Amino acid sequence: MTKSFLTIGEPMAVFSADEPDVSLEAAKHFTRYIAGAELNVAIGLARLKHQATYLTALGEDPFGISIKQEIKDNQIDTQYIETMTDYWTGFYLKQRVTTGDPAVYFYRKNSAAAHFNQQIIEQVDFSQVGLIHLSGIMAGISENGLVAVQKLFEKAQANQITTTFDPNIRKPLWSSEEKMITTLNALAKEATIILPGINEGELLMGSRDPKAIADFYLNQSDITQTVIVKLGPAGAYIQTKAGESTTVSGYHVAHVVDTVGAGDGFAVGLISGLLEGLSLPDAAKRACAIGALAVQSAGDSEGYPTNDQLKQFMEAQK
């Protein structure tokens, strides 16, 4: 029996501009989706028929109510989601662009997720959890969020559960760049598998060389066993504590609609592959495929495939 997946994060409503290449100030029409990096990963895994559990807090407001329903509709376990009356659900605006990354603007300060009740972690049954995915976003939204992430790393180690960590840099969440770098690198020490993008590697440890990034994270911790550096369209570089390394190629995409969610899609592919017993290179190849599918849709998670869609895409791209 395949074990389940668990993550924690801040779910948000995102209003994505309908008009391409128009500034957020000038955009008039938006389409609402659900978002949040860790939620994106949970949605992607549930779509691939993995049991996914999501820990968070939502406000008792229209966004919170609709997001919780959509989480249920995506077949994600909601038993550890708390609804708060005193805090609101965050949201953000996202530009639509035809090239490059879109501009975004967040309304998330003092959100319900930032006040997540850490006692919920003590209620979780970790016996059937196969992998826990954590990111720098939950750690960045508040001191409370950081402690929750640290507690989950502790639970994972106590229960010998594999962890993946995506730095997911969001500079506006941090009081200073120095604190962000120090905190994210300290969290990375606790992870079994680290998933930095090449730009994140440059910011966090000073190099764009994939091997140098991998060496840095493998050498700073006895816990870390694997580093997978995301190279964008070029694919991914894999290096293990045992000294093995390889690069898997990416997939060609004729038309990029929205780059937001591509990194989370990469995590979906990798984690689902690991839970299904694939080798690291095969899991990373699947990760590249879902990342490529993600950028072809406007919403953060709308492009994530079913198992049949994933199989068709990968076979067509051989």
Rank of each mutant, 00 (worst) to 15 (best):
A289Y: 01
L195P: 00
I238P: 00
F266H: 01
M205D: 04
L204I: 13
S221D: 12
K285P: 01
A287S: 06
S207W: 08
I238H: 00
K241N: 09
A284W: 05
Q239I: 03
G277M: 12
A254E: 15
A283I: 08
K241D: 06
K241C: 11
V253P: 04
D282G: 07
L280W: 09
D209Y: 04
G261F: 07
G269D: 02
G235H: 00
G261W: 03
G206W: 13
T224R: 05
I238M: 01
I290H: 03
G263K: 01
D222A: 15
T240P: 06
G265S: 10
L274T: 03
K230Q: 06
Y237H: 08
A294Y: 00
K285Q: 09
S279V: 13
A236Q: 03
V229G: 01
D258A: 05
A294G: 08
Q239F: 03
E276T: 13
L218D: 03
P281D: 04
A242E: 13
F216V: 08
P281T: 07
V256I: 15
F266A: 03
L231K: 03
T226I: 15
V257D: 04
I223M: 10
K241Q: 12
G265N: 05
K211M: 14
L275V: 06
A234V: 14
T226F: 09
P233I: 14
A234F: 11
F216H: 14
G201F: 04
E200R: 05
H252A: 11
V253L: 08
P233L: 11
T259N: 02
Q220D: 04
S272D: 06
G243K: 09
Q239V: 07
V256R: 11
V248A: 02
D264H: 02
L204N: 03
A236E: 00
I271K: 02
A284M: 11
L275T: 05
K241L: 15
G273V: 06
F216L: 10
A212V: 14
G261H: 05
T240I: 11
C288V: 07
R208G: 06
A236N: 03
G235M: 00
Q239H: 07
G235V: 00
T224L: 13
I198A: 07
S245T: 12
